[in-house]
Amino acid sequence: MSVLVFVEIKNKLSKAAKEVITYGKNLGEVNVVTYGNANNEVLLEMGDYGAKNILVYRKINEPNDQVISKLILKAVDKLDAEFILLSQDQTGKSIGPRVAAKLEAGHISGAISFPEVSDNFTVKTNVYSGKAIAYVCVHSDKKVISILPNSIQPVENKVDASISEFEEDLGNGRIKTVDLKPLGDGIPLPEAELVVSAGRGLKGPENWGIVEDLAKSLGATTACSRPVADIGWRPHHEHVGQTGVAIRPNLYIAAGISGAIQHLAGVNGSKVIVVINTDPEAPFFKAADYGVVGDAFEVLPKLTSAINNFKASQR
């Protein structure tokens, strides 16, 4: 039984990569396939989480969906892999289905649990935008599983890793990247452990300073409700909910958001929810762990200074 994990590595090992390798280690001996010019030290760090054989493809000019899928398929062939694992991030969403279709393998996208194998092979995923969980059974021998970020706790499990260079003809894919507009170097929302979010209760974009201050003190990523993105107070990529980004951070702080069902759908996978709202009847309090009935304009700065005091006392 052979396990193949695909990871992308820039200059350090991401949390998502650690999660996927941990998942693989749970299924068997882990082979990793990756590409690019990360140095060997970073690659070998994957051994800390159980990666044994690391295949690295050094020469990719344009890492588009067709080329990366080919790379994975070549590695599947070489290792006769049964499990193909990746992260359900933007890359995973374009690669996983391609690889699965080529292999005619059942694909579980967004796994939130290790497989249950006692009866047949089933894995839990979020469905109905987080309003429910499905137990999905895979019938094919080969299985492609993408893991929802922040769902599996990385576990250290040191093995001696070895690196081998991988050379194959991958062709060229037809998509050409002509520009990349960075969105700052913050942690992207789907992977964020801490999120501070605000809604129409903040009254206008000029008031977002108090939201950003709190996020900065915490080291959190900022998010918003849909109307706030629609009227252009905040960028679209911050919109969370049923028709925006679905998130499952450890902590979600929501200020001036009513808690409409479509908003809750994308955020109720959060481990702990703090709601700040002037209206004690706001529906969001029903989904909250901690509630503060109060004015966001007063509560947010107070919370920020409480966090700052706490951080100072930790030093």
């Binding site: 005619e104 393998a105 059942g106 694909h107 579980i108 089933t122 839990k124 469905v127 987080g130 309003k131 429910a132 969980i133 499905a134 137990y135 999905v136 059974c137 895979v138 019938h139 094919s140 109720n268 996978g269 929810i273 703090v274 709601v275 309090f285 029903k286 989904a287 909250a288 762990d289 901690y290 509630g291 503060v292 009935v293 109060g294 004015d295 007063e298 509560v299 107070k302 919370l303 200074s305 409480a306 966090i307 005091n309 706490f310």
Partner: peptide, 28 residues
């Protein structure tokens, strides 16, 4: 190649603990 064997609703929240706006240190 796949089928859903069963569904489950997420565990409901056990209830919200309310804090006074003046007690943010307690929240932290």
């Amino acid at each position: 190649l796949t089928s859903v064997v069963k569904f489950e609703l997420p565990a409901p929240k056990t209830g919200c603990k309310y804090l006074d706006p003046e007690s943010m240190d307690e929240l932290v």
